[in-house]
Amino acid sequence: MLTIHNLQKIYNGTTVVNLTELTITAGESVGLVGNNGAGKTTLFRMILDLIRPSKGEVLSKGTNVMQSGDWKNYTGSYLDEGFLIDYLTTEEYFKFIGDLHGLSGGDVVERLAPFTDLFNGEILNQRKYIRDYSKGNQKKIGIAAAALSNPELLILDEPFANLDPSSQIRLKNLLKKFREEKQMTMLISSHDLSHVIDVCERIVILEKGQVVQDMQTTENTLQELETYFTV
């Protein structure tokens, strides 16, 4: 699904991301963990062609993401509020995204059905603009928009941050469901170790832009991670 070769991003002489090789196969769900400044978001931005890499390339289904926009058709993503068109209402935004993927109004409603619990009655039919929602609710809107097209690849940056505990658990179940029912490939970064282990079958630890550990999740993973992050 995704192949990364010698990817580097250098800002003013500091190497922020430096990956020699990383491959994600279809159907795999990968959790990316690492402290602040490890390069998670920068890596995501390069995968989504939002930052020009200093060196190297990101191949999505074998095509460089910089050369063709085909990956956009099967990739859903939400990194931050910059992804939202904040002067639209939620419905308008979902409709816009739906239109882009050729979904009818009915399709959109149907695709949003699994999100009913997560939305908790606070997202739809609110008659207000996205910019007026709280951070947590904006995140829910962004995640739902990313998943709306039933993408083959779903990329989320810290989906659990800013969410209340119930929403975190609901989101976790939702992501698991997507993985099992739709075989969605997922790339998720998180600071919440237990959640990310729950959702992902493979954990990659990033430090100073480099992969320091790459492991399959087992029952011991949480302990290993906690040991790793205990300084």
Binding site: L48, L50, G69, G82, L100
Partner: peptide, 11 residues
Amino acid sequence: VQPYLHLPIAK
């Protein structure tokens, strides 16, 4: 254009 860059819209 920022909110549109990751969506399937031709550059």
